[in-house]
Amino acid sequence: MFTKLYIFLFFSGIRCGFNARYNALDDFVVSDLSQESTVVFSVSTAGQGEFPTNGQEFWKALSEITDAALFSNVNFGVLGLGDSHYWPGEDGLKYFCLPAVELYEKMQELGAHPLLSIGKADDQHSDGHETVFSSWKAELWTALGVGVDPASIAESAPSKLPPDDVIKRESNYLRGTIAKGLADTSTGSMAEIDAKLLKVKRTQNGISFGLCLLYLSSSSMVSINRMIEICGSREGSRTKRRHSSS
């Protein structure tokens, strides 16, 4: 369940344009977390409120850190998964999502900023963890500045750019958000609309740009016809050469 939810969040994040990756907790080098701007944890509950097997090393390492400012640049969210009635009696309730709660508190101790309050998904609900998860993830997307639920965005929805004239007019003399895009080191690409400003290029079927024929009054009809013949028979190479023309 841990993996399923996490991967769902991951791909939803990718669809929103985040440069996201996902790891099991134990695959993180704990101190490297301070380099992340946003971390979303999804933690299931094992045993008597213990971390799951692939998160125990992580928790051990994290518990030993005491630097209260280590994660001051990190925003985070925690979703806990558990069962409020797994352990009988009043004591049982304190184990419910306990590792998630501990992680949520520890991250704040180390200076990290919660994006939203902890989500505690309870298997006791009639539709399981889904009840809390759906409202929690909606809150998460809002906190991350995403207006709509990414799951509702069709995967292949083509981006619709305004007409070139509008792009140019509104670009403030070809500025657009190029400078911002260059400064964004989280991706090697530029926004599609800025790529337009960097290089506005269209293909026009049937017209080969970059080719110039010069007819001189002194040229003989024979040489002109020969020229046309050569050009006509070399359509392939001419098209190819267009790519490196400017």
Partner: peptide, 20 residues
């Protein structure tokens, strides 16, 4: 380093961080 049909230099494969 390409010399284009419009008499200029053209370079490919520049990563974003190297553009500026």
């Amino acid at each position: 380093l390409k010399l284009t049909t419009r008499q200029t230099f053209q370079m490919h494969g520049i990563l974003k961080r190297n553009l500026k």
